[in-house]
Amino acid sequence: MKSISEIDNIGARTKKDRIFMGLVVLLSVVTVSPIVLIISKLIIKGYKQLNFGFLVEKMPDTMQAMTAVANNELIPGGIANAILGTLLMVVLASAIAIPVGIISGVYLYENQGKWMANLTRSVSDILQGVPSIVLGLISYLWVVKHVTNGFSALAGSFALGIMMLPMIVRSTEETLKMIPQTLKEAGLALGIPYWRVLFGILIPTGFSGLMTGILLAVSRVIGETAPLMLTALGSSVINTNISKPTSAIPLVIWEFYNDPNMVDLIWSSSLLLMIMVLAFNLTAKQVAASRK
């Protein structure tokens, strides 16, 4: 008589299952390891420089950095000019992209199936695929050459804002589509004009969805380098004038890379940038989860 395990070939099956499970674990490790390696590398190499001064002082010059490196000390100064520049440009880009994106999203939502809306949606999707350097070039041609007559934070913000736009348009449309139609009808049935229904009922109801889209858009553009090289250029001083050249965290990382004396600062700057991106991402996840 054959045993059950022979009949059913259970032995072979568990073996197959084991191999399969092992493969799954292995592939998961392969997927996760780059991010773990990147973050641990950044922490190990960057944490020393990432002190309070790093956040509030402006960039050191090459001489200061060289002396510090020669004496085996921490490089003095920080990247406050870049942090402020990034914040300035992200805020300005949001100020451009959020209203335009939300209004376009509302337009798409209200005109489902019409050709103008379909065209707008397609154009917005195409925009999402345009390489960021091309957007930088466009902003250079339009804003740098004709509006601010020189490299400027505004030009950088324009490029970043255009990058954010399609994501906000999409998330606005998708969010509004998920709100029950009867909420809108209930508002209008109370004799409330459409735009007040929109801003008083629909947008607050979809707030977390819109917020998620905005935060993800910000986390995407905050690390953009190429378009800023052509527009904001960079600056070693703290600048708050939107029509003047301005620094940004990815820009100083590039500068540090090109200056042998400053190489140590690459890691702390990247670590800071990574922390910011993660913070925006995690907040977006949190907001999205709170919707339930």
Binding site: P180, T182, L183, E185, A186, G187, A189, L190, G191, I192, P193, R196, V197, G200, I201, P204, T205, F207
Partner: peptide, 26 residues
């Protein structure tokens, strides 16, 4: 006034604000 098939209070608003919504939002 209109009342719908499924109850549809405005989800972001308090009970108070729901009742007064017609005035407030106008």
């Amino acid at each position: 006034g209109m009342v719908f098939q499924r109850p549809n209070p405005f989800p972001t608003m308090s009970i108070y604000d729901n009742v007064i919504a017609g005035y407030k939002l106008n």
